[in-house]
Nucleic acid binder design. Structure first.
Lengths: 340, 340
DNA sequence: GTGAAAGCGCTAACAG
DNA sequence: CTGTTAGCGCTTTCAC
């Protein structure tokens, strides 16, 4: 008598377990009266269905797995967790979070564990836009990729629209009168740097601005690297009046370089960046205008897409879909009109 | 024949399902020979035990729940997730992550969902040290509290040693010759501010430094608040030579104030802080010396403690334990000896 | 040391 | 619309 089960409810309500199951799950047909009665007695008895048993029988656990590389390691993409959980809760599913700590062996074990727990599907998430090779283990599981483009299997995926984001950022600077703009680019060969470069160049071109050689410098993703890279730039006679930074950490370094050069932001130098990592963007002085990487939205999209995939996993294979998610600008105080 | 089950393994190995179960789980008695054979055929067939079924029968799912307020919302405590997952993986359990979005109703639903999935226990985590009232729903579940002190139930909990951390930080400044130290304190009445104040005062006292009235100012937790609070302080004749900041964001504001006042860190002003939030501490120039809040370790401790609790949940109730976790100093470049 | 039988709590399939 | 029967895949109990 310890825990109340479906039989107890059935007994108390004077119906069969089947009817209770139908009434509570909404499947099958039950008269409004009995449905109501069942619900009442269930609540009265404090009935909590055992999802293990349900899942075992129905082959649907309403659990999804989230496997990430180091999404938890780095605070940047924290919002994908939030987005995933938000959407999951709304859909009535729960998420098992697992992270590989960048180790293929660990990842295999983790995915296997997820399988053993019979998850309905898996979100394979990266912490920044990259090409991903989906592990074989996932081959027979509904899967979506978040912030990455799968190379070896056609599954739905979402990545930020890198080109648009760069185009918008640079256009914003141009609209403020700037024509000498330097792109403080990431040094790695990743989709983000490729896409943003294209957007950068397109913005210049469409606004009729010459793309001279000195419009681009490289830095790795840290304030220190940004500072070091930007510093010499600002000491030149012909220095740029605006910077488009690859991310907020680099922008922070640019602030420091400006400080060292005795330049005021935004009066002497406008800065726009990418990430909208609030802790940095809000904390800098003046606050940093930045293009948001919409992690929360990506998380939401991923679970919605995954659930759709699970729904018709037996039915027609609909074409895998690619989602280039738009990146809005969050305007703060680091961009000012050019004064001659 | 779709999926291979325990019966298939039993058949192939020429033994009974019972024996397979025993051999794989290590329980019961099985001869080394058969054990080996079972393992081999299991691997050969690619057997993946169904944990749902196992859990249903054995009442042990090897799943634990992590319920947090907004731990995922804020990047600061991201490492507890990492620590929890790390320890969980090592122990062969998996974690269901859920977050309440600060809403009691949502939290109830989430905890109920966790129960339905028959989690073995729950880690109730907060994003900063605070008193917590455990929801009734958790009453009959093994529970530990992370970064909070339960008020209504005696369960194990872990919180940072606020007093020690402050004492160590301030002592560090004193050892560098500073005697005019201002504590840029948090404005909220939370355990952290209380504990750190005690540590601050004890450090002054033990080193024979007078606690004059102007050693403490208040700011809320943002760079802007830090800047605004610190700025007037630095313009006084009798300004402090060192700052102990409540956290890294406030310290960032202090950097900005120093900059505005034309003061160099650490030559003119030493700064030490709390959080060791690496994105900020490493990015500031010069890099910020900070007391680490050991979130990863707290995560590890929480799962280990929880698993112990689950193990002897039927046995003797051992006294609930409180863990004041030590906070190490991470030395960077923001503290220098006082030059007269 | 090994196996047969029972059953965890639920839902699917079908009958009425 | 409701109930009966069977069984999801495993572990437990208990006999051998």
């Amino acid at each position: 008598m310890r825990k109340v089960g479906i039989k107890d409810v059935a007994h108390a309500a004077g119906v069969s377990p089947t009817t209770v199951s139908h009434a509570l799950s909404g499947s099958g047909k039950v008269s409004p009266d009995t449905r109501k009665k069942v619900h009442e007695t269930a609540r009265a008895l404090g009935y909590t269905p055992n999802r293990l048993a349900a899942g075992l029988r129905s082959r649907r656990t309403n659990v999804i797995g989230l496997v990430s590389d180091e999404i938890a390691t780095t605070p940047f993409a924290t919002n994908v967790l939030l987005g995933v959980q938000h959407a999951a809760e709304k859909a009535g599913v729960i998420v098992m979070t697992v992270n590989s700590e960048r180790n293929a062996e660990t990842e295999k074990r983790q995915i296997t564990a997820l399988h053993q727990h019979q998850v309905d599907g898996i979100i394979y998430a990266r912490m920044y836009n990259q090409r991903v090779e989906l592990p074989e283990l996932l081959d027979s599981t509904p899967t979506v990729v978040l912030d990455g483009k799968p190379t070896n299997r056609a599954v739905p995926f979402v990545i930020p629209n890198e080109e648009q984001l760069a185009y918008d950022a640079v256009s914003h600077l141009i609209e403020h009168g700037h024509t000498k703009i330097t792109f403080v680019q990431n040094a790695d060969k990743i989709p983000a740097s490729r896409g943003r470069l294209i957007g950068f160049e397109r913005a210049l071109q469409e606004h009729g601005i010459a793309r001279s050689d000195n419009d681009l410098i490289l830095a790795s993703s840290s304030a220190e690297a940004g500072r070091t890279a930007v510093r010499p730039l600002l000491e030149r006679e012909d220095r740029p009046t605006a910077l488009f930074c690859f991310n907020d950490r680099i922008a922070m370094g640019a602030y420091q370089a400006a400080h060292l050069a005795g330049l005021a932001i935004p009066e002497d130098l406008s800065v726009i960046s990418v990430d909208n990592f609030e802790i940095i963007a809000d904390s800098l002085y003046p606050a940093l205008t930045s293009m948001e990487l919409p992690h929360f939205q990506m998380g939401v999209w991923a679970v919605e897409r995954l659930l759709a995939l699970i729904e018709n996993s037996e039915e027609d294979e609909e074409e895998p879909c690619e989602y280039l998610i738009g990146c809005p600008m969050v305007v703060r105080d680091s961009v000012a009109p050019l004064v001659k």
